[in-house]
Amino acid sequence: MPASAPSPFPHRDLTGIYGLQPHEIGFLLDEAEQWITLNRTTASKHDDRLAGLTLINAFFENSTRTLLSFEIAGKRLGADVVNMHAAQSSVKKGETLIDTAVTLNAMRADVIVIRHQSSGAVQLIADKVDCPVLNAGDGRHEHPTQALLDALTIRRRKGRIGGLVVAICGDVLHSRVARSNILALTALGAEVRVIAPPTLMPAAIERMGVIPFTNFDAGLDGADVVMMLRLQNERMAGAYLPSPREYHALYGLTPERLERAAPDALVMHPGPMNRGVEITSSVADHPTRSAITEQVEMGVAVRMACLDVLTRGRRGIEGWA
């Protein structure tokens, strides 16, 4: 590539889908494809292009699967992976987030993956460190790698994203997964509907280019992809919803309800699932319709792609500043 050509991904960090061009999202998805192939080999899954680089997973909020996914992604690329859990860190002793960021920076991390319970916290850290920062979820704001892995799953299953009708269902109000997916899928040309109880529907959500529904059946009509969101237990106790039972009756994805979607509609869920609440087991485990385990697989590939792309500048690869 000539030195003057713009890099296909001219961002130091991945703090959100917001601000990315459609072709940049597409580039990350294309990059992820090679890692699916590698991950499926039964022999060594190592690539080692990140050998010698230090990846810090700084998780201020508990996570099992996302942390594991980033850890595996980093290790398959040969990076030295260090995990920092808030429960074991000085954050509990009252250290400010900025001080924590400065500390991580002083340890000369080469890439930092951050999850935090407050919206905007990842950007705050990114502004204070010298290395690429990846957002693994900040409050209700964004969870960009989840949106990328969802987009990759849809693209591989459906062959395209543009023109598809995608219904995002559940607790949209508190969901960073919903926000990042809305941004990514609308950018890639899908028609996005959001379906939520009125108490869990964000204000002015239509301004993000989606069609809001409070009636699940109406919103599902003819959808090509049905993306369910996790309902946090604490929301079911009466403040936002009367009961899990009522939520299931009105907003649970059952085989009967799924009939309203397109005949080959794909069922997705970011996990972990509340079986019997937002989704019934027969739908979640459906052999052809459910893409839920595939999403987990795509997660590792997408995170490998992101780690690779964001560290190209540091690794001195030509054309990557």
């Binding site: 905007g120 900040d138 409050g139 209700r140 704001h141 964000p202 204000a203 002015a204």
Partner: peptide, 15 residues
């Protein structure tokens, strides 16, 4: 305040 900005940023908001 409830609105597009609060929704985009993922901030708790009130009408």
């Amino acid at each position: 305040t409830d609105g597009e900005m609060a929704t985009r940023l993922g901030l708790a908001s009130a009408p």
